[in-house]
Amino acid sequence: MSDQPPPRLLTEAELSARLRGLAAHGAVPAPTTGAQVRNRVQRRRRGRRVLLSTGALAAAALIAVTYGALTSSAGQPAPPATSPPELPPAPVQQVTIDLDAYTLTIEGRTLRISGLQESCPIGETTVTVTAKYPSLAMPPNKFSSLTGIEVKQWVVTFTDRGRQHERLLTWALDPAAGLASIGHNAGAGAIALSPEDGKWVYDAIEPGARVEIKGWQAASPDPDTTCYDRQPVTGTR
């Protein structure tokens, strides 16, 4: 250890004198008094504290913003997956059969038909087309038993609501049968069209078409053995 005494602290007057000497040689600006020296030292200390405080606040703000963003993105549920927009249902084809006017209207076209025998109504006012057959062999009945099974052309069918049987709705007359029944009540449980119109309706109508049947129908029908067009479709198709 050194035996020399510690350096003596300068008094305020001595410190001011030395600073003025340094200022005279251009080292530092010359303070006039010791109070000015202390004020200058204090201002420097305050400046450093302000810089440190400003830096700390900026760092804290950055941390808060970053944490908030991470917390927000982590806490929010993921947006639901978007599904493709639903398409509107396809319009249902509309068909009208007018038994009083002897007409069938489809796709803006009105065609002449044969009506129903009073004793053999269809028995429905609204039906849905379920199937189509270019030719259909009907089951035997007492009217066709002498000549065998009757084959009908360009047949359109529906399923009735009572017994859930597939039945005839429209068919095309055989050219050999002539057109005497068109415009008259002649159908034994279904309506008929001319050969040309029957083929056109067969091509134009679609399964699922909604058919409105207008006009008067008898309340007390004959049995299916008499109304053979009303029998269930069970033959070769």
Rank of each mutant, 00 (worst) to 15 (best):
G26W: 09
D229G: 08
H165S: 07
V155M: 09
I113W: 01
D100V: 01
P89G: 04
Y67N: 08
S16C: 11
P77R: 12
Q117S: 08
L111Q: 06
E150F: 10
T125K: 08
Q93N: 01
G187F: 09
G75P: 06
L136H: 01
Q4R: 15
Q231N: 06
P121Q: 09
S53A: 04
D160S: 10
Y202K: 02
T157H: 07
Y202Q: 03
E86K: 14
L19T: 00
R46H: 07
V211Q: 06
R237K: 14
T71A: 13
A137T: 07
D3H: 12
Q217E: 05
W216G: 04
A188W: 10
L111F: 13
L9G: 03
Q153C: 02
V155Q: 04
L19Q: 06
D197Y: 07
P121N: 10
L15P: 02
D100N: 15
R167E: 08
S2I: 08
W216L: 11
T71L: 11
D160V: 09
I63G: 11
D98K: 09
A74P: 05
A13P: 03
V41Q: 14
T33Y: 00
E118L: 03
I205P: 02
G26M: 13
P140F: 04
G21S: 14
V233R: 05
S2K: 08
V37Y: 00
L146D: 13
L169A: 02
P121L: 12
P29H: 01
A209S: 10
V37Q: 07
L168Y: 02
G148V: 09
G187Q: 11
G162V: 15
L111K: 00
I106G: 01
W171A: 02
M1P: 06
R43N: 07
S181T: 10
H184W: 15
R161E: 11
S53D: 05
T147I: 10
T236K: 15
L169S: 04
P77D: 14
E118K: 08
G75N: 12
L136Y: 05
A64H: 12
P139H: 08
D174G: 00
L116K: 04
E206P: 02
G189V: 06
G115C: 03
E86M: 12
R46W: 14
